[in-house]
Amino acid sequence: MDMRMRGRRVLVTGAAGGIGRAAARAFAGEGAHVAVTDRDAAALAALVAELRAAGVAASRHPADITVEADVAAAVAAAAAELGGLDAVVACAGISGPVGTMLAETWTTKWDAVFDVNVRGVFLVLRAAIPVLRAAGGGDVVVVASDSALVAAPGMAPYCASKAAVLQLARAAAVELADDGIRVNAVCPSIVDTPMSRGDLGIDRDDTAGFAGAAYAVQTADEVAAQLVFLASPVSRPVNGAALVSDFGYSARSSFPA
Rank of each mutant, 00 (worst) to 15 (best):
D2K: 03
V150C: 05
R60S: 15
V124S: 09
V36I: 15
V75M: 05
C159W: 00
D205W: 12
A63R: 07
A26V: 04
P194A: 12
A78V: 06
M3H: 06
D38T: 12
N239T: 12
V89Y: 01
A208L: 01
T13I: 08
D40A: 13
G17I: 02
E81F: 03
P157L: 10
A32P: 08
V174M: 13
D246M: 13
G7Q: 11
A177D: 12
I181F: 08
A208K: 09
R21T: 02
A90C: 14
A220W: 06
A35Y: 00
V191H: 07
C159D: 11
A211V: 11
A128L: 06
S250V: 15
I202M: 06
G96L: 06
V75K: 02
L168T: 11
V244Y: 02
Y249D: 09
G154M: 09
L243E: 09
G198Q: 06
D178Y: 04
V118K: 00
A43D: 11
R60N: 08
V75I: 09
W110F: 15
D111Q: 15
A74D: 07
P97E: 05
L176Q: 10
D146H: 09
V71P: 06
N184F: 05
A103V: 14
V88W: 01
V75Q: 02
T100K: 03
S161W: 08
P157R: 05
I19P: 05
A225H: 14
A26G: 02
D70T: 11
D139C: 13
M101R: 13
M101G: 13
H61F: 14
R21G: 04
V142G: 08
D139H: 14
P233T: 12
L125R: 04
P188Y: 10
S189K: 12
A172G: 08
G240N: 01
V238K: 05
A127Y: 04
C187H: 11
R126G: 00
A53S: 15
V116T: 13
M101E: 14
I65A: 11
A54P: 09
N117S: 01
A152K: 12
V36G: 09
D205Y: 14
V141D: 07
D179M: 08
A63V: 10
D70A: 11
A63L: 10
V121E: 00
V140C: 07
R39L: 14
A46E: 15
A144E: 06
A211G: 10
T37K: 09
E30D: 13
P237W: 04
D221N: 15
G20P: 07
V48S: 07
S245K: 08
P153N: 01
P153C: 05
S95V: 05
V34C: 07
V67Y: 03
G154D: 09
A242M: 07
